[in-house]
Amino acid sequence: MLEVYGTQLASRLLLGTARYSSPAVLTEAIRAARAEVVTVSLRREAAGERAGQGFWSIIRGLGVRVLPNTAGCHTVKEAVTTAHMAREVFDTPWVKLEVIGEDDTLQPDVFGLTEAARILCAEGFEVFPYTTEDLVVAERLLAAGCRVLMPWGSPIGSGRGLNNLFGLTALRAHFPGVPLIVDAGIGVPSHAAQAMELGFDAVLINTAVAQATDPVAMAGAFAQAVEAGRAARLAGPIEARDFAEPSTPVIGQAFLA
């Protein structure tokens, strides 16, 4: 079981709720993914196309744990206010903290992020910061009071998978006891399996499922990939080598002349 802020989670696949064609497809995708936690963008989704369809009751009706996010926030103040509103509306201390620093890559403003994390942790929030794989930033976030980190795989919605394998591997190795959830950029189930094989504790998927031709089937495929990757990690993968090694050893075999 994965434990985040004292909550045990059986599922290691978290699902974002944005960009689905309908609430019905979203509901089915959550079921197919066997997700226990969904992220909800308070600012974007509540004011988007679904606003007229009883957004608030749809989210409450999903029957899963809600992780509100601060998507669309560019400053510490915006993120903090959004977190306050999310806590009030969804009645949860959890917040996935996003402070966006650059519009083309949507990469986190790590300076604003650590500042907002410090404020929110001090106020009793349980913060899931969307960050890069930078080790120093990770240290600062932990010092601010975060007990979970959400490093990106690649830019949000890009589907590029894990851009910096070296950096992500180093992050995992540096913080063996901290739940690390790969957030953003995962495009296909093999990317998710790879993150799990590297030892990450969970993955968060949104666009790759929501924008697939068949989101429900894709959610199921991701569920299998996450399970396979996790099982492989626990099974102890072999090290990669530069040269071939015969899988049928010669030494020790009978020499039959």
């Binding site: 974007r44 509540a46 004011a47 606003a51």
Partner: peptide, 9 residues
């Protein structure tokens, strides 16, 4: 109310 979540911050 969705617009409030967008504009209040």
């Amino acid at each position: 109310a969705g617009w409030i979540s967008r504009l209040a911050p």
